[in-house]
Structure formats: structure tokens, C-alpha cells
């Protein structure tokens, strides 16, 4: 190593180490390159507590996020808007699949389903009721609701790390996941929108040996 090159080698080493550490931190140890993947890992590493947020359900009843999840030992939460023609359909069919599987397994009383709309302006209780009929939601185990106070929407999206961007044509660009929450309002896992089978396995295992 010539003395003239020494500062360059040192700088190079610093850049390589900094890049490695930076990428390691950003990607949760090189295991997530997407925001959804990173969120799943972040929630698995440190579960989050859901706050009390006022909701109104498809039957027009006032309720609360914490109260809804307290109804069952476990709840699967999905955030959608009913006009959506893309990823929400995937989440709705995932929850629909879960409703059938949980019933078949005889554990429907242990696991509730909760669909939350982030479009309270259009998704009024009447619209949510139509939606519930369309997806054949069983009102005992599957709650479909939206925020009672539109000002709470931001807080709701923040807790779930859901990004919603209006696309200018009345639709939204957004992400999603199947969030697993326990009866104390602790969100301990976020699975991909189409990972209903995985969600069932996790929940069935938890219900059988909590």
C-alpha cells in the first residue's frame, strides 16, 4: 500500500462499512426491500398497541376499535374501501376464506374478523351493510366498520402504517395487510393481503396452544 493511496483506502473502507450498516438497518437485516415487508418485520419484532378509536359499524352502531378486538381472543383486521377494485378484493376474499376455514375448524368463536374502511365519506353504514351482504359476512364474527369521526382517520392509518393516496379519479392508491391482533389490542403480526392460509395456520396454532 503506497502512502499516497492510504487516505483513499481508508475512505473506501468507511464508505463500504457505512453502506453495509445503512442497508442492514433499512432492510431489517437484508430481509425486506419493500415497505410492506419492512412493516411486517417491524411489527413481528415489536408488537403495537391499538388505541381506542371510535367506530361506527355496518348496522349503524357506535363502537370502539379496542372494544371490537376485545370481543374475541384474536382478530384479523384489514383496511379497505368498498369501491376498491384491486387489493381490497384480495383482502376481502382472504377474510371470506378465513370465515369459512375458522367455522370448519370450529374455532370461529375464538377468532373475529374486522374490516375497516378508510373512506368514511362514501362508506356510510348503509353502504357498509350492502358490502357486508355482498361478501356474505356473518355479523356475529365479522365486523365491518369505519371511523365515527373523520378526524380519527389519520390516527387509524398511522397505527396500521397504511398509506392512502387519492389518485385524482375518486379512487385510492394504497397498501394493505392482514393484521393479527389479540384481545388486549396488541397487534403482533402483519401478513401479506393474500396470505389467508398462513393467517389461518398461525391463528389455529395460537387458539390450540395459546
Amino acid at each position: 500500500m503506497t502512502p499516497r493511496m492510504r487516505p483513499t483506502w481508508l475512505a473506501l473502507a468507511a464508505i463500504v462499512v457505512a453502506t453495509f450498516c445503512g442497508l442492514h438497518a433499512m432492510t431489517h437485516g437484508f430481509s425486506a426491500v419493500t415497505s410492506d415487508g419492512a412493516r411486517q418485520l417491524a411489527i413481528a419484532e415489536s408488537p403495537r398497541q391499538l388505541p381506542a378509536i371510535g367506530l361506527v359499524d355496518s348496522q349503524g352502531r357506535k363502537t370502539d376499535l379496542r372494544a371490537v378486538v376485545a370481543d374475541h381472543p384474536y382478530t384479523v383486521v384489514a383496511l379497505v374501501y368498498t369501491q376498491c377494485t384491486s387489493i381490497c378484493l384480495v383482502m376481502a376474499s382472504s377474510e371470506s376464506f378465513l370465515q369459512a376455514r375458522l367455522r370448519d375448524a370450529g374455532i370461529e368463536e375464538q377468532v373475529g374478523l374486522l374490516t375497516l374502511s378508510f373512506d368514511p365519506a362514501r362508506d356510510t353504514p348503509e353502504v357498509l351493510a350492502q358490502y357486508a351482504r355482498r361478501i356474505k359476512a356473518d355479523s356475529v364474527t365479522w365486523t365491518i366498520a369505519t371511523v365515527a369521526d373523520h378526524d380519527d382517520l389519520e390516527r387509524l392509518l398511522d397505527v396500521f402504517d397504511v398509506v392512502v393516496i387519492p389518485d385524482g379519479n375518486g379512487e385510492y392508491i394504497h397498501n394493505g395487510a392482514l393484521f393479527l391482533v389479540d384481545g388486549d389490542g396488541r397487534m403482533f403480526e402483519a401478513l401479506a393481503p393474500d396470505a389467508a392460509d398462513l393467517a389461518f395456520e398461525r391463528l389455529a396454532a395460537l387458539v390450540r396452544s395459546p
Binding site: M5, T8, I15, G22, L23, M26, T27, T34, S35, V163
Partner: peptide, 26 residues
């Protein structure tokens, strides 16, 4: 610190790598 352009190129490559990650873009 940039003999033969080594450090400059490496840093630029690292910057480019970061902004290719979907989560960084988000």
C-alpha cells in the same frame, strides 16, 4: 481520498443502490 476515482465511484454506486430499493423510494 479519491485516488483513481475509487471512493467517488463506490459512494455513487452505494447511493444508486439505496434509491433502487422500493422501501427507500416509498
Amino acid at each position: 481520498v479519491n485516488a483513481l476515482g475509487l471512493s467517488g465511484f463506490t459512494l455513487a454506486l452505494a447511493i444508486s443502490t439505496v434509491w433502487m430499493l422500493p422501501l427507500a423510494l416509498d
